[in-house]
Design a protein around this nucleic acid. Structure first.
Lengths: 221, 221
DNA sequence: CCTGCTATCTTGGCGTTGTCAAGATAACCG
DNA sequence: CGGTTATCTTGACAACGCCAAGATAGCAGG
């Protein structure tokens, strides 16, 4: 009864027509990516890991670049899902949603650092691929949603200002994600609430960086 | 004539003993890195670009990883120099210094995107290399200097809080750098002063992200 | 001047990789 | 049942990282 089923019964592989080789290759590649590192990811190694011939992956992905693009596509999908899941567990209030999504952003990066880097290293990907653009667009939309909600909650109406705020939110999360997975700063969870000791400084910092005139009420302190 | 000089007179290369082959290889590799992309950087291509045999680079760098490490080392040195130069042209005041250094951070990243990515992609580098650690430590010191000065200017004294502030500054610049060179957001120079329209929102955002209690004075408005 | 000595660079080769071309096999459809 | 297509295999080629051996150049000491 083997030939009628579209997927192999268990882990057994029949000769020719794997059934779901493309996904099997992607899963193997994702595992290999985090274990072996991004530059040890090879079509041949992935193929032999699944148990097919060395040229089998090329049929599904075209090239190594195609495989990377496919990996980034599932990466962006999982990325958006992680942020959505984090938001779902948080109170339905703009600021809580914003902070939950940021936690999701960071936990995805720390959980799949190699994939995260691959997704955001544009020259290695094929951005003409429709699936990749769709997946990345979905994640981008997720990001726009909660940052725009936070912006509106803060009273912003100018679209340009809202976009600038979105960039600020994105840049902070993205930078912290990169620095954490590169081991340059410890995960933010290790530095919980120390900023409470000096709210003024942190609050004013954003103003200083972004060319916003500082509050005049307590100028010199 | 020829044999006594330690460096080739002009562009001419004599057989054997290039004179300054290590630096020549680094320069060629830096050029190739930005033009061809990081994954097309090869010892053999760099060698033939300089005009030496395919195994010559191995003698100076040991391996491709060693070449990458050497490139990252000069990268970090130039990186720190770029921030220092930007600061030197700014007024000698903590906040102006902070913003100038941030501009230097971003201009280095946009000027050498491939090198910037290489420098901050840890798994591809040998962090046991003393020169790399020294160069990266210098850049890190530069960053600590101006952010600590800004922190003190804002009245911060707790070392833990100062460090947290440094991470915030670093993450924002680093994230924006990555997003810009990946083409995901336009360079910040294209979005100059629009935040002035709504200073409160941007100012309060940092408080919201970083678990700092928002100001109670003007809560709703 | 001549003789080791060492660093530097070359030559040759091995195993692995991405990619292409051609063939074999299985599924599907009329 | 026969033809068509998608899927996978086999074989080959060039380029790559890396290693071992050899060749050359500069240098020091007699």
């Amino acid at each position: 009864m083997g030939p009628s089923a579209s997927a192999p019964a268990s882990g057994v592989r029949q000769a020719y027509h794997h059934g779901d080789l493309r996904n099997a290759l992607i899963d193997a590649a994702l595992a290999m990516l985090e274990v072996e590192g991004a530059d040890h990811l090879s079509l041949r190694a992935v193929a032999s890991s699944v148990g097919v011939s060395h040229a089998a992956p090329a049929h599904h992905f075209g090239s190594l670049r195609g495989l990377r693009t496919a990996l980034a596509t599932v990466g962006f999908t999982r990325f958006a899902a992680t942020m959505r899941a984090a938001r779902a567990k948080a109170p339905d209030e703009p600021i809580a949603q914003l902070r939950a999504a940021r936690d999701g952003y960071l936990s995805f990066a720390t959980g799949s650092p190699a994939l995260f880097r691959l997704m955001f290293t544009s020259p290695e990907l094929d951005w003409n691929d429709a699936a990749l653009c769709a997946a990345a667009g979905g994640a981008r939309q997720e990001l726009s949603d909660y940052s725009a909600a936070a912006a509106r909650h803060l009273g912003l109406t100018d679209p340009h200002a809202i976009m600038r705020l979105e960039h600020l939110i994105w840049a902070e999360a993205h930078g912290e994600a990169h620095l954490v997975i590169d081991g340059r700063i410890p995960p933010s969870s290790a530095l919980p609430e120390i900023d409470k000791a000096s709210p003024l400084a942190v609050v004013d910092l954003a103003a200083l960086i972004y060319a916003v005139p500082a509050r005049t009420e307590g100028d010199g302190a």
